[in-house]
Amino acid sequence: MSTTTIARQFNGPDHSGNGGYVAGLVAGPVAAGGGAVTSTLRVPPPLEVALDLSLDGSRSVLADGATVVAEAAPGAFDVDPAPFVGEDLARKGFEAYAGRVEHPFPHCFTCGTARAPGDGLLVFTGPVDDPTYPDTVAATWTPHAAFADTDGHLGSEVTWAAIDCPGGWAADIDETPMVLGRMTGEILSPVRADHEYVAVGTRRGVDGRKHHTGTALYALDGTLVARAEQTWIAIDISSFR
């Protein structure tokens, strides 16, 4: 067992952890074996609190005392990744990002418009202007060097965060506030700072309060770098502010 803390920088809603970042954090011990990992968030992850991270066989658990915050286990995909839409459509998507007009969590580490370069990721995915890709958002994105290790690679938690919020925007999070409930993710190759990528999110379907989405990160040549499938839960936003 180890102790870890979610720094305030890595928030989603103002007072709790970014879903993708926390999903990647708890997935870390399981992902060391390779393959996809499914992370489930049980409660809003607290910020600046010492949390226990433990591995029990193939299952990892992030806990705040007796409260399970999140857990992870080996996962699998049963659908194709969110589609590569190409650089041109992704650039247009970036310009059309709805979060610049209305944003439920403007300080979100991944997609918040109130964050500065090197403080937040600034992954701003907007609608893809092509009927070939319905219910899909995309953007070009260049990770800031502030998030890289000495080899120039992003940490896995940061990569998971980058492939988190595009799913929320594909599900119209500006119209229906929601938070991440479950995420199955896989990093296929390291993400490098100062390299440009295409981030994509696509809506899979809705089941009551649950919104199902897929996300992906591609190199500009269309090589798949990371992907995820997600379940988002619609919320009463007043309880997250």
Results as ranks from 00 to 15, higher is better:
Phe10Leu: 06
Gly181Tyr: 08
Ala32Met: 08
Ala148Ser: 08
Glu196Gln: 10
Pro81Gln: 04
Gly34Val: 02
Ser2Asn: 12
Gly152Asp: 11
Ala27Val: 08
Ala90Cys: 10
Thr159Glu: 00
Pro117Ser: 04
Leu224Gln: 02
Ala234Arg: 14
Ile163Gln: 07
Asp149Thr: 09
Leu25Pro: 08
Phe109Glu: 03
Pro46Gln: 11
Asp236Leu: 07
Gly75Phe: 02
Ser238Phe: 00
Trp160Lys: 00
Thr40Gly: 00
Pro131Leu: 02
Ile6Met: 08
Phe105Asp: 06
Ser16Asn: 03
Gly214Asn: 10
Trp141Arg: 04
Pro81Cys: 11
Glu102Asn: 13
Thr176Arg: 14
Val225Glu: 01
Glu48Asp: 15
Met178Gln: 15
Gly214Pro: 01
Pro45Ala: 15
Val69Ile: 09
Leu220Ser: 05
Ala23Ile: 05
Ala7Met: 07
Arg42Lys: 15
Gly57Leu: 08
Leu41Ile: 15
Pro29Asp: 03
Gly99Asp: 06
Pro143Phe: 00
Gly126Cys: 04
Val123Cys: 10
Pro143Thr: 03
Leu41Glu: 03
Leu53Tyr: 02
Arg182Thr: 15
Pro131Glu: 14
Gly12Glu: 04
Phe109Ile: 08
Val69Asn: 03
Thr38Leu: 06
Thr67Met: 08
Ala7Trp: 09
Leu217Phe: 01
Trp160Arg: 06
Tyr218Val: 03
Tyr21Met: 08
Val61Phe: 01
Gly20Ala: 06
Gly214Cys: 11
Pro134Gly: 09
Thr136Ala: 11
Val101Tyr: 07
Leu41Gly: 01
Gly120Phe: 08
Glu87Trp: 01
Ala73Asp: 11
Ala76Gln: 12
Ser16Val: 01
Tyr133Thr: 01
Ala199Lys: 01
Gly214Ser: 15
Arg209Asn: 13
Glu196Ala: 07
Arg100His: 12
Glu196Trp: 01
Arg91Asp: 12
Ile187Leu: 14
Gly57Ile: 06
Ser58Asn: 14
Asp119Ala: 13
Val200Thr: 15
Asp129Pro: 01
Ala72Glu: 01
Arg8Tyr: 12
Ala66Asn: 10
Glu48Asn: 14
Gly12Leu: 07
Ile235Met: 05
Pro45Asp: 10
Leu25Glu: 06
Arg8Pro: 00
Gly65Thr: 06
Pro104Val: 05
His153Met: 10
Arg203Glu: 09
Val225Asp: 04
Trp160Cys: 14
Leu89Lys: 12
Val22Lys: 07
Phe10Cys: 03
Asn11Gln: 13
Pro29Met: 11
Arg182Trp: 00
Thr113Trp: 02
Arg209Glu: 12
Val101Met: 02
